[in-house]
Amino acid sequence: MMAPQPADDRALLELRGIRAGYGIIDVLHGVDLRVERGQVMALLGPNGAGKSTTLGVASGQIHPTAGRLLISGRELNGVRPEALARAGVCLVPEGRGIFPNLTVAENIRMMTYSGGSYADVQSRAFAQFPRLEERRRQLAGTLSGGEQQMLSMARALATDPALLMLDELSMGLAPIIVEELYGQVAELARSGLSILIVEQFAQTVLGVADIAAIMLQGRIQRTGPPAEIAEELTAAYLGIQSPNGGDH
């Protein structure tokens, strides 16, 4: 007798043998990655490993030269990024994905492209980050780094995404702000949202992740539970033999 199968075993996001780059320069050399429904995955690795390029491929902004991009079981190589974003695949880019010359409210208003009304989009954004409501008339460029990152996340969440991808959320922020932001991420994860987080520095992100992967030189070197990956990551950064036998 066959073992019972889960209702739907399609991963929300799956990359199979993805090769991609910029012009003639290849950055990804066969990336295999799988984010399950409701899972929080941390993708870790040093600068230049290809993490942001991986997110570019997953969000449809960079077309792979080889391999398959599967979203919820369907191959979507060549899909337009705006169509993917409208469907619910949302990327919070590295740095700030905001318009500094617009106010907080105007930045949020721009997310009505996804089809939601302004009132819906606004209430969803302010429910997650009440601090932004106090600053709704302020120019986004004059917010603090943490608040700008909050606005960036709020804009993404306002579209009610099914898959949220966060690129270097902690970059340039004070540890206490990073902790606060990851508190929000943990809360989102509890609501069942699938999240793929890219980070260089692991400690905070491993606390909220269900699974983690190390990426080096355009390839996924190892995937496993966050606790195991934390040990391997030190070895990967230092270029020494890891306790589990992996030579990085």
Partner: peptide, 11 residues
Amino acid sequence: VDELRITGGRA
């Protein structure tokens, strides 16, 4: 996702 139209596809 099932209704998405794929119009591009080339790097």
